[in-house]
């Protein structure tokens, strides 16, 4: 198995966690209730921890231009948008809508849960260890999202409508999570990676069951957005990176 392949794969998972941590971080001091500020911050911190482990691993496998390993911060702050390989789902802005935050978290944490549960058996020891730790965190994220989808769906008529809209809004970005490409095929054959296509059934089954209990409908759409794994992002990504990176880039080589 090639280090380059493993690094590219770790980067995908790391970017997913990093970008969602950035989005979740926006909720701290803006949540609907103070208890929820604390809960969302916990989730953001878990995701940030996963991102750091995965980016550090990716950076160690592939040497940078100076011949040394690239740090988590090099990878976070010094890559351009096209070099980020997260799925588009995680970069979608919430525009202050808690329903949107929760809809995305339900889908993404369900996906991450199945992914990490399987990846804990990876032939790659580091990925297996990261996954074994993260699956417990993500289990809680999924539960948190589930609790909220139930309450917003089966709450008031207004909340039901808003939760349904939020699911509808994220749905065109769901299928991207299950896409397989040559990199994944190579790594799956070496038992390093998990085939995203195989996650589709369990993830959608879990999400559908929650949506159903919440008296909501699983959105039906033929629209499918994709491209994140190839560095093609939504317009929102440029703004996200501008905010994330501007300070670090304003002081090249600085230590913080």
């Amino acid at each position: 198995m090639s280090d380059t392949d493993i690094a590219a794969y770790a980067l995908r998972l790391g970017d997913d966690a990093l970008v969602l941590a950035q989005r979740m971080g926006d909720w701290i001091a803006s949540a609907p209730q103070l208890e929820e500020d604390v809960a969302l911050a916990n989730i953001a911190l878990d995701l940030l921890g996963q991102a750091r482990a995965l980016l550090t691993y990716a950076g160690a496998l592939v040497l940078g231009a100076d011949g040394g390993p690239r740090s988590e911060d090099d990878l976070t702050y010094l890559r351009d948008e096209r070099e980020f390989v997260n799925a588009q789902l995680v970069e979608l802005p919430d525009h202050g809508d808690f329903g949107h935050c929760i809809a995305r978290l339900l889908v993404f944490s369900s996906w991450q849960y199945e992914l990490y549960a399987a990846l804990a058996d990876s032939a790659d020891q580091t990925l297996a260890a990261v996954a074994a730790k993260a699956v417990k965190e993500v289990d809680y994220h999924r539960d948190h999202a589930t609790q909220w989808v139930l309450r917003l769906g089966d709450g008031t008529p207004m909340s039901r409508q808003r939760m349904q809209h939020a699911l509808d809004a994220v749905w065109p970005h769901v299928e991207e999570l299950f896409e397989t490409d040559d990199l994944v095929v190579r790594l799956v054959s070496e038992r390093v990676a998990v085939d995203p296509a195989e996650l589709r059934t369990p993830v959608l089954a879990y999400v559908a069951a929650v949506v159903d209990r919440a008296t909501l409908a699983v959105p039906v759409t033929t629209v499918r957005h994709s491209g994140g794994r190839r560095g093609i992002h939504t317009e929102a990504m440029g703004y996200l990176l501008a905010e994330l990176q501007h300070l670090a880039r304003s002081h090249p080589g600085a230590t913080w």
Binding site: G25, D26, A29, D37, L45, G49, E72, H251
Partner: peptide, 22 residues
């Protein structure tokens, strides 16, 4: 939080602001 210049600092700042909510 969104602009913290390293991931370590970002994590510390998130945890600190979370503590303030707590």
């Amino acid at each position: 939080i969104s602009r913290a210049p390293s991931l370590k600092r970002k994590a510390i700042l998130m945890a600190k602001v979370q503590d303030e909510a707590g």
